[in-house]
């Protein structure tokens, strides 16, 4: 009874259910536009889980950058494309079998980690780590974003 009355448990159950149902709909929904919409739902559920783990800044970043920019970009791009039914490869039974085996192996590998999360991310600590230890990764990420922007503009503007 105390397990269900705990608000953190309730939020975890709701957000994990939202994430898993959204992931199933991403794979199974007939329309790609709705699949992209459910990807944003998966992002929201995952952001709640990040906040529960003690990373509220990462959660906000995930909501604003991933859900707000990347998924919206996919959504609007997919809305421009005409949906064409493509042939699915006939390997569903094999895929289900391999996925079940994969899940069992993953749960077996990850089962030793069963402690409570004991961390709360400090904004000052995160930013100082980013600009002191990971400054090169930050610059590479910025350059990759700029290159992707230039590449996307070039590909989109080229006349075929």
């Amino acid at each position: 009874m105390s397990l269900w009355s705990n608000p953190i448990t309730m939020i975890f159950l709701l957000s994990s259910t939202l994430s898993i149902i959204a992931a199933i709909f991403i794979v199974y929904h007939k329309s790609i536009v709705y699949s992209a919409f459910f990807l944003s739902m998966l992002g929201v559920g995952n952001a709640i889980l990040f906040a529960l783990l003690g990373f509220p800044i990462i959660s906000l970043f995930h909501l604003s950058v991933y859900v707000g920019a990347a998924v919206t970009f996919i959504l609007f791009s997919v809305a421009m494309l005409k949906e064409a039914p493509s042939v699915e490869p006939p390997i569903k039974a094999l895929a289900v079998l391999s996925v079940i085996i994969l899940t069992i192996i993953l749960i077996k590998v990850l089962s030793p980690f069963s402690a409570e999360p004991s961390f709360f991310l400090n904004y000052r600590e995160l930013t100082s780590l980013l600009v002191t230890k990971y400054w090169f990764a930050l610059i590479v990420a910025a350059m990759a974003l700029m290159t992707a922007l230039i590449g996307a503009i070039t590909i989109a503007r080229r006349e075929v």
């Binding site: 898993i20 794979v27 997919v78 094999l94 996925v99 079940i100 899940t103 089962s111 980690f113 409570e116």
Partner: peptide, 30 residues
Amino acid sequence: MEVFWYLIVSSILFAIGVYGLITKRNIIRM
């Protein structure tokens, strides 16, 4: 909540993603 439950959720998400990646041929769906 113990971390183990978060890891189970992520394992299930990973499995669903791998299933979609194996069984679809549409590039956007992949």
